[in-house]
């Protein structure tokens, strides 16, 4: 190899900028080598001055190994976090989605676990994409499942802890949710899709239906509850820190007077049984169920 050619190849930083630009390019490897991001570091026709051929592969074929593995890795990561989106779109369309998504939201984290954090936003900002509103809801749901899985473990307020609160203190009490609780208000039915993906059945057609979900973790498994509008609104209000008296009064106005107390009490019993709260705070004094 002539010394002149070797002398003009990029330095370490330039080599790395070049290689990264080629690897992450959404097109094929020839297109990637010729694209401005790579060609500004090393013109495509000078590839042989930087990369050696092997006994069986040309320099471009050797670069292509890394180029091909990049998208495959991104697809695998997003399949793990969004299996229902993948199930709905099918293999080919999902791969195309990933190609577009990682070009817009490349990984800037040390972990692939955060790669998919922006997928709901991606769908929201692409209203012209087919089923974008439904996919936005589905992606939000699956992101909530991932977040519930990874959330820190927090203590659970059980029935004994709740009963320890004197009745007169309840109106001013505030309930703190467990770290692994996520509340979702959606415009589409997503549960049939979650079930279809889980059981390997064909994905149903998207359907607009107001849906309210609580996604949470108990005993290290992620669970979900499908709620009615008023129950969801009350639960969210409490999780946001609204004093109990105020939140319950607002919910009660949405319910028939004959069923009010029984209904709300039933909701509370269910939430406590599912371990959705970690503590209740009364006048600056926190009561945890130890």
């Amino acid at each position: 190899m002539p010394r002149d050619a070797v002398r003009n190849v990029p330095d370490l930083a330039g080599i790395q900028r070049w290689m990264q630009a080629v690897i992450v390019h959404p097109g094929g490897v020839e297109e990637a080598l010729a694209a401005p991001e790579a060609a500004s570091e090393l013109a495509a026709e000078r590839l042989g001055e930087l990369i050696r051929p092997s006994h069986s592969l040309s320099p471009a074929e050797r670069v292509e190994i890394y180029h091909g593995m990049y998208l495959m890795r991104m697809v695998e990561a997003l399949e793990t976090d969004y299996p229902t989106v993948r199930h709905f779109l099918g293999e080919e369309a999902f791969e195309e989605l990933v190609r577009e998504y990682v070009e817009r939201f490349p990984s800037r984290s040390y972990t692939l676990n955060r790669l998919g954090d922006h997928l709901p936003r991606f769908f929201l900002e692409e209203p012209e994409r087919e089923h974008s509103a439904f996919l936005h809801d589905l992606a939000r749901t699956e992101l909530a499942i991932t977040e519930a899985f990874d959330a820190e473990e927090t203590p659970i307020l059980g029935p004994d802890g709740a009963q320890a609160v004197p009745p007169e203190a309840w109106p001013g009490a505030r309930l703190a949710p467990i770290a692994a609780l996520r509340l979702l208000e959606l415009r589409h039915a997503v549960v049939p899709h979650l079930e279809a993906a889980k059981r390997g059945r064909p994905a149903p057609a998207p359907r607009r239906r107001a849906t309210w979900l609580a996604v949470y973790r108990r005993d290290y498994s992620v669970l979900r509850l499908e709620l009615g509008r008023t129950e969801f609104t009350l639960l969210k209000s409490l999780a946001d820190g609204t004093p109990l008296g105020e939140a319950v009064a607002a919910a009660a106005r949405q319910l028939r007077s004959t069923q009010r107390e029984q209904t709300i009490f039933g909701w509370f019993r269910g939430w406590i049984a599912e371990g959705l709260f970690q503590s209740v705070t009364i006048d600056e004094v926190s009561t945890d169920d130890q």
Partner: peptide, 17 residues
Amino acid sequence: CWTGVLGRNTHDLLPLP
């Protein structure tokens, strides 16, 4: 190895010269 530059991570173990 290196895994990325300019704040990005390709999540691959890339070769060094």
